[in-house]
């Protein structure tokens, strides 16, 4: 088990180093940041001073290692645009994104699981096949199209929920939450639906497939033979046996959702990390872009590694094979 842990964590670190290298390359290929930061009247001495202050006079590899060591400590430098500390900028945006992703994940489970069960139980009936067909749209429609449609229908036409912003927020220490105010709760509805739609269809499809498998099993037939009502067979006996892969999917996709949130946040002007990143791209604010890349990857890699380790804890056979 120890060897397995070392191996998994080691490979996670390797992945992070590679990502950090890519993030760092942004600085190298994107032109001279000094030229972008100084104004046109700056002298050569001013430029050299700034270059030295930013450490840009160092050799490439030294700069990379400095970047990695700083990044590991949460130091991503100063935003070109706002001249503020990048890490605190991102930290101020993190709660908005995490809340959005969390609500979207919950939504995908709350809606996706029953839909999966229903389409499995009523396989072949028109509404079941219809849902199955509709789910293809959920998987294939780009999320910004869905977001724009949602805004058009529910915000512009019907006026049920706001189409942009986060509403009022309440500060709990460094964490700001919109979930405690009515306007904040209203504001999260549409972006959460837009973000969750893809995930809902994924959950629905995986639950459906697992249910069809489980419903053929002997213990389901035996439960019928001992007179357990269908409802209990479906929602207790069968569904519970389907939840393992759903839990895995949800955990693994949490990172994907954070990445997807970038598009949703942009369309809804949701003040999360994704919007920060898009604004940074538009303003060529490289430190923010690099920090975003590294942080998102870190979340991804951490989740994947955790899922792998949990699996190994649950199933001893996995431990054996992977070591």
């Amino acid at each position: 088990m120890l060897a397995f842990l070392i191996k998994r964590i080691g490979s996670a670190i390797l992945v992070m180093l590679a990502v950090a290298f890519l993030a760092f390359l942004i600085f190298a290929v994107a032109g001279d940041p000094v030229e972008m930061m100084v104004n046109e009247q700056a002298t050569q001495a001013d430029r050299d001073a700034l270059r030295e202050r930013l450490g840009l006079d160092q050799p490439f590899l030294v700069q990379y290692f400095t970047f990695v060591i700083n990044a590991a400590q949460g130091e991503f430098g100063i935003s070109y645009q706002t001249q503020r500390d990048v890490m605190s900028l991102i930290a101020s945006r993190l709660p908005a994104t995490l809340e959005l992703v969390f609500i979207a994940s919950m939504l995908s489970l709350i809606v996706g699981i029953p839909l999966g069960v229903i389409t499995a139980i009523h396989r072949g009936k028109w509404f079941s096949e219809g849902l199955q067909f509709l789910s293809i749209f959920g998987v294939s429609l780009p999320s910004f199209v869905i977001a724009i449609l949602l805004i058009l229908v529910f915000s512009v036409w019907l006026g049920w929920a706001p189409g942009f912003g986060r509403g009022e927020t309440v500060a709990l220490g460094w964490w700001t939450t919109g979930l405690l105010t009515p306007s904040g709760r209203n504001a999260i509805i549409l972006p959460a639906i837009a973000l969750a739609l893809y995930e809902i269809t994924l959950v629905m499809r995986i639950v459906r497939a697992e249910m069809l498998e489980v419903l053929r099993s002997d213990f389901v037939k035996f439960a019928r033979a001992r007179g357990v009502p269908r409802r209990i067979i479906h929602y207790r006996h069968a569904l519970r046996n389907c939840l393992m892969p759903v839990a895995t999917l949800t955990a693994m996709n949490f990172g994907t959702l954070i990445a997807f949130a970038l598009v949703t946040e942009t369309v809804f002007q949701w003040p999360g990390m994704g919007l920060l990143f898009i604004q940074a791209v538009l303003n060529l604010d490289f430190p923010i872009m690099a920090a975003y890349l590294v942080i998102i990857s870190a979340i991804f890699v951490t989740l994947n590694t955790l899922v792998d380790i949990i699996y190994a804890v649950i199933d001893p056979r996995l431990r054996q094979e992977k070591v």
């Binding site: 099993s217 002997d218 213990f219 037939k221 035996f222 439960a223 033979a225 001992r226 007179g227 357990v228 006996h237 519970r240 046996n241």
Partner: peptide, 16 residues
């Protein structure tokens, strides 16, 4: 289950 009890072949797979 009430009037007609059942015993299946494979006890390994008959139980949840």
């Amino acid at each position: 289950g009430k009037q007609i009890g059942a015993i299946f072949q494979d006890p390994l797979t008959s139980l949840n």
